[in-house]
Amino acid sequence: MKSGKFWAWLTFVLGAAYFFIPLIATLEFSMRMKRGEYSFEAYRVVLGDARFQESFTFSVVAAIFTIILGVLLVVPTAYWIRLRLPQLRPIVEFVTLLPLVIPAIVIVFGYIRMYGSSSPLPFLASGLGTNALLVIGYATLALPYMYRAVDTGLRTIDVRTLTEAAQILGAGWTTIIGRVILPNVLIAVLSGAFLTFAIVIGEFTVASLLNRPAFGPYLQNMGANRAYEPAALAIIAFAITWGCMSLIQVLSRFAPKSANRPN
């Protein structure tokens, strides 16, 4: 037992070292922009850069649209599968897991060839269409996470009984989904939303191949041309990811405990 505890500590400490050293190193590097002293100069330069502000705003907006699309797509589907079409469940789950198997670069390659300006559905012919395709691509990438989050949320509430109770009270489908189901899975949906945000905000491949002025390509461009700013950006990106994940953790404390489940 005593030696087991020693190995557990050793594993934990080595793991912590591997994960913290790059963060410390990056932080240290990001503060070395001014010679001979530590400063936040790199952060000041980055945050004051108009291209940073533009690309970051672009990605935030893209992330918000992605979340809206993802929720509209996933919540009714997951709900309907639980309520009426459980036999479709394995197929839908399989489809939602596909984006983990098919690399993002392959999916976006398919988009470029299928929805080019001379195709029957020329998404890429206009800026707006391309933006739409970017959001669609992001929603696809986030599908596994969004679906799992929502489905887990639905599992903790008794979908059938809630629906029937709402129907007896005279509610229609939009009322049922909008006012009964959604509020009950809101925490789960928000968890999925923040995860989506974390994935989308610095995404490079899709944005770059669709030539969108997003944060990911901006980051890559800075990396190729600057020394200290990329380190500052890495710290900022880590902080954003950390913020999203912390929000999910905080939210999970408010999640409904499966109180009205049979058994």
Binding site: I199, F204, P230, A231, A234, A237, F238, T241, M245
Partner: peptide
């Protein structure tokens, strides 16, 4: 957090 911390910023961190 770290499982979602990939992409370009991760490369920067390891370069640093």
């Amino acid at each position: 957090v770290a499982s979602q911390f990939a992409g370009v910023p991760l490369a920067f961190a390891f370069l640093a």
